[in-house]
Nucleic acid binder design. Structure first.
Lengths: 144, 144
DNA sequence: CTGTGAATGCAACCCAGTTGCACCACCAAC
DNA sequence: GTTGGTGGTGCAACTGGGTTGCATTCACAG
């Protein structure tokens, strides 16, 4: 049994073909993918229904199997956290829309941010989303 | 001439009625509003076209007259920065969708975040978006 | 087998945001 | 005056990521 199948079982999900294919598409990526990106990758080797994809991604996100982030362009991006890693932040290129995962570079969530809050927050904190916006190296070298 | 009119002039925009009404709706808010929220407020005292609103908000955002943020639900939120304030972060309630501005509590953007990047970023940084997700006090007291 | 719930697939829908284009007010050049 | 350009607004239609409803299929227990 593959590690992805284990991951699904641990989270109470049957390791079906569709789910494994989705996890496969996300594994080893260093950028957070659009649902469209994933769909395209999946369809490269066989048909795939977009509703199945969306529902599966939602189920994964609920179980923290994947992380779902909101990019600057109002589309969701999905990525798999590295093992033993909490949330990571992202670098979003406002020109090409690529969203690179900044794994291991900093852990800028609760740990770093919370101590800086002088005033109490207006609610119970559950997660911290950090997105760095800019122009990625590829776009910079393409036209400055 | 009102201060909002000055603000527009300083940014090379005619202080038209529509623009002033939009700024008025945003002024003094401590939460970041949806376009729909603004539209509703505007229409409370007279008709208002949604396209005009969207175009105006975009023009404002380009000139940094307002800040545009992406909430966890894929809708944009708009708020006016306090005078002399850079970017501020937000507390987003995943239950009711309210997005409170955390003005003055911390300045968690470039200043705090950049020194933590051990590795260089994969591009040229322009802005930092920080969103704290959780359950707001109102929702907590309503049902825990 | 057969019943049941989970998983999948198809079509239709939702809706925030955008685009295209006409209209209008204003001003400058002729 | 009138013509032409420009910036702002309004209406209608569109876009596209994401969702919902519902029928079908699959896996497995009884």
């Amino acid at each position: 049994m593959t590690s992805n199948a284990c991951l699904l079982r641990e989270n109470g999900m049957e390791p079906t073909d569709a789910r494994l294919r989705i996890l496969e598409a996300l594994s080893g990526q260093h950028i957070a993918l659009r649902a469209q990106d994933i769909l395209k990758a999946l369809r490269a080797n066989g048909p795939f229904d977009k509703v199945t994809l969306y529902r599966t991604l939602e189920a994964f996100a609920e179980r923290s199997i994947v992380q779902r982030h909101c990019a600057g362009d109002r589309t969701y991006r999905y990525c798999m956290p590295a093992p033993d890693e909490g949330m990571h932040s992202h670098f979003y290129c406002t020109r090409c829309g690529n969203m690179a995962c900044l794994t291991g570079q900093h852990e800028p969530g609760m740990g770093i941010l919370r101590p800086m809050d002088a005033a109490p927050l207006p609610g119970r904190l559950q997660a911290v989303e950090i997105r760095l916006d800019g122009i990625c190296d590829a776009c910079l070298s393409r036209q400055g």
